[in-house]
């Protein structure tokens, strides 16, 4: 397109709790190739990305994992900072988390509040989340949150999180949320009620067919 510039920001949220051990390598592989696949898809649609950034949030459980509950990278500008991005992803180890549920909603809240690019004529702001677990309700232990729980940034309940998604934090036309998550609280509610979301109901994307993966990429690339 003449004259218009495309800026694409991607935040990858990866459940890094112990139960993900059997599939974490596959998820990391999918995370690393997602931006490549999207770039190829956009090139095929004659859409040139002027700036592509990717950020990673590895999440576990604030209630049992202390400082390891949330590992958050800065945005990496690709392809220039590709090796930093790869190193961050490769360092993620599936560990901790205690019993299900996990802090997937907190990871999502932090992802929504990322420092999205304000540059470019057309933007796409994408969050992709992989998990095999349900989520703690945001109200869980409201009076006794762990010390490192980012209370100021996390909505008090699911309705407030929904408002955060619906609000101005992300560009309404640009945002997309892709969930590779089981049919469990709160992922099913999100898939059914939030705008601009796609859920592939499974454990972290297991069994995703090529045709469904292609559909997801197309849905993102075509609507930029």
């Amino acid at each position: 397109m003449q004259g218009l510039s495309y800026h694409v920001d991607i935040v990858l949220c990866i459940d890094a709790t112990g139960s993900m051990s059997p599939i974490i390598d596959k998820v990391k592989e999918n995370a690393l190739k997602f931006y490549d696949d999207l770039s190829v898809q956009m090139r095929q649609k004659s859409k040139h990305i002027d700036k592509l950034r990717v950020k990673v949030i590895a999440f576990r459980d604030y209630y049992v994992d202390g400082d390891m509950a949330m590992q958050i990278s800065p945005f990496f500008v690709l392809p220039d900072e590709k090796s930093d991005f790869q190193n961050f992803v490769n360092r993620i180890q599936a560990d901790g988390g205690g019993d299900e549920p996990e802090n997937g909603l907190e990871a999502l809240a932090l992802a929504i509040q990322s420092e999205w690019s304000k540059e470019g004529d057309k933007r796409r702001q994408i969050i992709v989340l992989w998990t095999d677990a349900s989520t703690h309700p945001l109200e869980f232990k409201a009076e006794s949150k762990p010390q490192n729980y980012p209370t100021a940034q996390i909505p008090k309940n699911f309705d407030d999180l929904t408002d955060l998604w619906d609000g101005q934090t992300m560009n309404r036309a640009s945002k997309r949320l892709i969930l590779y998550s089981p049919d469990a609280y709160a992922w099913t509610d999100i898939a059914n009620h939030w705008e601009n979301t796609i859920q592939y109901p499974s454990k972290a994307g297991e069994g995703l067919s090529e045709i469904d993966y292609q559909t997801i990429l197309d849905a993102i690339a075509n609507s930029v």
Partner: peptide
């Protein structure tokens, strides 16, 4: 039918 759940598609 696709397994994808979405109002986007």
């Amino acid at each position: 039918r696709s397994k994808l759940r979405t109002r986007l598609i």
